[in-house]
Write a protein that binds this DNA or RNA. Structure first.
Lengths: 227, 227
DNA sequence: ATTATCTATAGATCTATAGATAATGC
DNA sequence: ATTATCTATAGATCTATAGATAATGC
């Protein structure tokens, strides 16, 4: 291929504490910031990053670009703050979801079903500026690592839940099989949520059928004992 | 949600014959057009659509914006022409790949292995401006339909190959099972090719291992007779 | 003679800032 | 008194065009 950047690759700009976001001392300030992030989330998801101007975001949030720039250093800072907020919500959700205490007494299939149903619902109802995230991930190593870490938290959490129930699994190599099943389910969910580029046979069937089909296949592959 | 367009949704601009591309009567002209499309493919894939200026494309193709605009009505025409060229190549590849004559005497597993290996190799070596395609697909119904048709040609072709070998399939509902397996393999490939947002357990294992694992799972689910 | 390319730039955005005005809370 | 917001606009891009120059092929 060819070099993306003429000069040397820029170092990661993704850091946990965003000093380019004004702390926001007044209540009003925090409300405006939240509104700006909400607006950015919707617009980036609907129109894409480049097609959304800072004026669009400000207008949708009910303020002006001047106010926007009071809160965020520049357009990228707005984007990063949005990605970070989304990230934090996502991480909290994951941690609650894979908490072993929450699933005491549950069987593998129950856990996997909840994973599928919850992922589909969340993916449907929350605007995610996937394109924007891809653009940042393409250029920012730090953000890529952050994403990998998040995903790993989910994957490893689910894996631990399954492994704690390894006596349910008939497959001769439970761990390898479980990892593969999690890869498959993750891929299926992601494809189903983003039908634009990759239509599937199951695309026009209802979610319930998709979930059942996926679970049946997972159970068969893992060799889950129905007891 | 909220309306993406203030006015009514624009009608599809994706049509098969692009009248906004100059026919190109001289040999030189066709070469320049090809170079411009090559340049656009590389730059859109590497930097994204919005971050690539028409001047970038022209420079990479070794000409100037003036020449570019001689060939293409505007930036969108360049993009559409690129998507169309890619599409045509893809369709030709698909048609050759799922031609029943080509697979005479082959077993299901052989076909599926070729599908996996070929998709991975192609996806790796050819720059695809996925982001650009997503942006067009988001706004253009006609292009979405076109994509669905392409994908369907691949899916249906593969399905026909498998169904012609339904005696190999032990699963009680061979067609349903085959469709599901094709969905799963398609999703896995797509995820593996685009690791940016969705890291998997198998991500850091070599392709060969990924392919074997996927095929083993497919064979188990379909209940493929090993003869 | 016609087609393709280049040079130079007008016009349209869009980002980001400076300076004025309004709201907050000690 | 400090923080937040608004108004107005300078400066930076980028698209697309007009008009001049160069290459092609009948």
């Amino acid at each position: 291929m060819f070099p993306v950047n003429e000069d040397e690759m820029a170092r990661s700009q993704w850091i946990e504490d965003l000093e380019w976001v004004r702390p926001g001392l007044q209540t009003r300030s925090q409300q405006t910031q939240a509104k700006l992030l909400d607006a950015a989330a919707e617009l980036f998801a609907a129109k894409g990053l480049a097609a959304t101007t800072v004026a669009d975001v400000a207008a949708r949030a009910g303020c002006t670009t001047g106010a926007l720039y009071h809160h965020f250093k520049d357009k990228q800072a707005l984007l990063f703050a949005l990605l970070q907020r989304t990230s934090e919500e996502y991480r909290a959700t994951i941690q609650a979801a894979v908490d072993p205490a929450r699933w005491e007494g549950a069987r593998c299939l129950e856990i996997l079903r909840a994973y599928l149903e919850f992922s589909l619902e969340t993916g449907r109802n929350r605007p995610v500026s996937k394109g924007a995230a891809i653009e940042v991930a393409r250029e920012d190593e730090g953000f890529r690592e952050h994403l990998a870490e998040l995903r790993s938290e989910l994957n490893e959490g689910l894996l631990a839940l399954l492994m704690a129930r390894r006596d349910e699994i008939g497959h001769p190599e439970p761990e390898t099989a479980a990892k593969f099943v999690l890869d498959v389910l993750g891929s299926l969910i992601s494809t189903r949520l983003d039908e634009l580029l990759l239509p599937t046979f199951l695309a026009d069937r209802p979610d319930a059928e998709f979930v059942d089909e996926a679970l049946t296949a997972a159970a068969a592959y893992l060799g889950l004992r129905t007891d």
